[in-house]
Amino acid sequence: MTGTYLTDAVKERFPEDVLGTHAFRGDDTVVIRKEALPAVAAFLKDQLGFDMLMDLTAVDYLPREPRFELVCHLYSTGRNVRLRLKCPVPAGDASVASLTPLWPGAGWFEREAWDMFGLDFKGHPDLRRLLMYESFEGHPLRKDYPIDRHQPRRDDGAGRTDR
């Protein structure tokens, strides 16, 4: 094997689900199938000691298919080691399993990813918008959201008359 200890350990445990790995200056990255996310995440947390989910976000690679990519940054406070976990998400089924059962801190990250990219997190206890308001239409960080589209807020008694 040519990867690092970490990437090899994940590849060895999930040979069917790891799509690729790479490591650059200590940044170990594992790309997996999205169906395997709960199992791989549980393995990383329970077996390899990644007790902290530092960040969870998404990328829109339009027009690539699979269009989206979920990115998780994991950290082991015991070993001072980091790992990046990615999984491609197709536009036709823009949903992944929620990581809130493993790391409760995933809650707001996933709400933000839902708000900005429209990724549906199955099993999230309260998947509402985090940054935008409820009457906002669409997901603004998707590449096909018009860059000049404004949505003046008309709910909540703001008394807006423009546009």
Binding site: M132, Y133, H150, Q151, P152, R153, G157, A158, G159, R160
Partner: peptide, 10 residues
């Protein structure tokens, strides 16, 4: 921002 607009109005 738009989310804050009703607060400013109030």
């Amino acid at each position: 921002n738009e989310k804050l607009a009703p607060v400013l109005r109030r």
